[in-house]
Design a binder for these strands. Sequence first.
DNA 1: TTACGATCCGGACCGAGGTCCGCTTAATTT
DNA 2: AAATTAAGCGGACCTCGGTCCGGATCGTAA
Lengths: 226, 226
Amino acid sequence: MLYACFMSSALPPFPPSQEPLDIPQLLEVGMGPEEPCLRADAARNRARLLEAAARLIAEHGVAGVTMEAVAAAAQVGKGTVFRRFGDRTGLLMALLDHSDRKLQADFLGGPPPLGPGALPLERLRAFGVAVLYRRVEQLDLHLAAQMEPTRRFSHPAVTALRTHIAMLLRQIVPEADCELLSQTLLNSLDPALIHHQTRQCGMPMERLESGWIDLVARVTGTRAPD
Amino acid sequence: MLYACFMSSALPPFPPSQEPLDIPQLLEVGMGPEEPCLRADAARNRARLLEAAARLIAEHGVAGVTMEAVAAAAQVGKGTVFRRFGDRTGLLMALLDHSDRKLQADFLGGPPPLGPGALPLERLRAFGVAVLYRRVEQLDLHLAAQMEPTRRFSHPAVTALRTHIAMLLRQIVPEADCELLSQTLLNSLDPALIHHQTRQCGMPMERLESGWIDLVARVTGTRAPD
DNA sequence: TTACGATCCGGACCGAGGTCCGCTTAATTT
DNA sequence: AAATTAAGCGGACCTCGGTCCGGATCGTAA
């Protein structure tokens, strides 16, 4: 009744922190109870599905990632895909899981200015820039995975980012409504917005980058006078 | 070959303005060339479809607005719905058109603090609050109409809002990247975000409202010291 | 009034996401 | 090793958004 437990789909829950707790070990905490611990065949199929999906993306772009196509490419029934990932969004999210964990590890325990060791303001700047570029790297995937407004903000990976921003904000502007501000700030890095700005408005990444820096400065009230 | 022209679906294009041009007449400008001017039967069917859709929403919620259901309720073929509105999003957008125009009229030519006559900063504050409440009023509709990240930012109604913010910003912080800032600010009023904050996080509207006020103050650097 | 052409209409058709349920298989227990 | 059971599997099936094209209709011009 207890199966080998690996390749979890969702990020581990990020405990709400009032204090700057930047322990890398956090990444490993809390994976116990809510990870279903797949059966051997299920885990194997899961891996094959993810691999197949990645291959399909590489070959035909995100639009080519049809649930039936993925199932066929993985030589698996269609129902299996849905059983494992819930829906298409879940599958795409799972594909982004690796990058998400990497980013999370970077700002939780990596070197400054992203990780602990730098000033909160510097970390916040670096954080936004990091998110920006990593999202651009896989923009199509992010866009495709972003349908459905409901889960967009409650996904663990997004929650982790928001919580991190909130923590940094609390160290910089403790008197502000950091919960709200963190949501606002993170939302300004919305993949759909990035897509619009870069691809539809033709803004270069440098502009978005300095836009984030400027926004942080304004929001935290740490603007150098012009 | 020239038909009666009424009940246009899209908002009139909002000409890019460097100067504060707040003439109500703007609402009527530019409706000429790109409005197709429907044929009589087409216009009649269009009206029936919108009415049917509204009725369906009232009865079964937004989820009940199926293209086939709307067509059936309007006693019209399914193809007609798509011909007229392009897709489901288009239909839902058209349903929001009235509110959009009203809001636009309010901040273009209505009484202060929303309309011209008040200080730019006051107008910006009032603008966000107005958008906030109007979106909450029809939140489900806004959410359903918001699928597809591509058109979310390029729709005329959204563009109009963003342009207006940009115009106000230029009067307050001319040295800033107002284009970018306006997108950021408007995105902080994203219906999906509002949904998450009010319904998933349980934040009261007052908090969102003061959050906007505070955000505007921070972004424009007009914060009163605590 | 009649003829003409552009526009529109309708519903059959398709593809893809998502559900369901009977069957299979892996892990556990005796 | 055999029995038990929870989990997984597969693919038929459904719904719904979106497309297409032959035929009907409207507005116009002769």
